[in-house]
């Protein structure tokens, strides 16, 4: 490597940091930095009425995995925590899958409209989100409840003989989360598909590729960054989802977001809440890095 190339590389790295600096400063001030407080709190003792007492303790971390049985003080695996965590992961994975299955065709549809119409369709995706999340969730409830729009129409049409109970089931939570997170999948997918040179498709078909082959061999590899971005934007926030599971799921089954909230609220165990948050952060971070790295490597194979 020549000296000038070295200098160019160094300049490139300097530029990278300089360009990222505003975002990093902002995040340090108002997101990642304050998390250090939570990290410290996870090693303290719970205060009598919430908050913390400045006495070092590992109880918060211990309670993430083990709980003392409330009645005989025996130490056992905290199966309640694990059940709640597993439910969150399962629902989030399903949500990501469904938003992709719905979002990819939608993004493709938008990206293949004439340029002027494209912006319009894009806005049409986001307009429902100009209404408030809570009221939107209540509106979904209004559509799917037993005497709601969907069931009334289906019965009038003679398709159902009695209302289909969707409300307060996992299906309702999934529908609601798919609704809420759909734009988070569609917009990055759109951004990725939109730069795609459609002539490549013609080339593919000229070479007698089937539609399926074109989709798998040409479209998916090029759209991959969009898929990665979209999945992260849907999966990670839905892990901590709070409003949708509560309103549509009827609140009978907690997700991890609700559980952490409980510790900082009525549960009055901030150190446990802090330790749970840190555990979640670590799990998500590791999963994310593995995912991005694996996806990145595979991507290189296709060039």
């Amino acid at each position: 490597m020549s000296i000038s190339e070295d200098a160019a590389a160094a300049r490139s790295v300097r530029n990278a940091w300089a360009l990222s600096a505003p975002a990093l400063i902002l995040l340090t001030l108002a997101a990642a930095g304050p998390l250090l407080i939570v990290l410290v709190y996870s090693f303290l003792s719970p205060g009598k009425y919430g908050n913390v007492e400045w006495v070092f303790s590992l109880d918060g971390w211990r309670s993430v995995l083990y709980t003392k049985d409330i009645f005989d003080d025996s130490l056992q695996l905290a199966d309640a925590h694990l059940t709640i965590f597993w439910r969150s992961v399962k629902l989030s994975l399903l949500t990501t899958g469904i938003t992709f299955l719905v979002g990819f065709p939608t993004a493709w549809f938008i990206a293949t409209r004439p340029p002027r119409a494209r912006a319009l369709w894009l806005f049409l995706i986001t307009i429902p989100f100009w209404t408030n999340l809570l009221i939107r969730t209540f509106a979904i409830n209004e559509v799917i409840r037993n005497e709601g729009l969907f069931n009334t129409v289906m019965i009038k049409l003679g398709l159902f003989s009695e209302p289909l109970r969707i409300i307060n089931t996992d299906a309702a939570v999934l529908m609601g989360m798919t609704y809420v997170y759909l734009p988070l999948m569609v917009l990055p997918l759109f951004a990725a598909i939109d730069r795609f040179d459609m002539r490549l498709l013609e080339a593919g078909y000229d070479l007698y590729a089937s539609r399926w082959q074109v989709l798998r061999r040409i479209i998916l590899p090029i759209v991959k960054p969009g898929i990665i971005a979209g999945s992260i934007l849907v999966f990670v926030p839905s892990l901590g989802a709070y409003v949708t599971p509560r309103v549509l799921g009827g609140g009978k089954q907690m997700m991890i977001g609700n559980f952490i909230e409980l510790q900082f609220g009525q549960g009055r165990n901030w150190p446990l809440g802090a330790a749970l948050s840190m555990s979640l952060l670590i799990v998500v971070m590791v999963a994310l890095l593995v995912y991005v790295r694996a996806a990145g490597k595979e991507g290189h194979g296709h060039g």
Partner: peptide
Amino acid sequence: AQEYVTAIWTELQK
């Protein structure tokens, strides 16, 4: 007493 309340509630929500 508060620990009991929270533990019962958590178990109920699992």
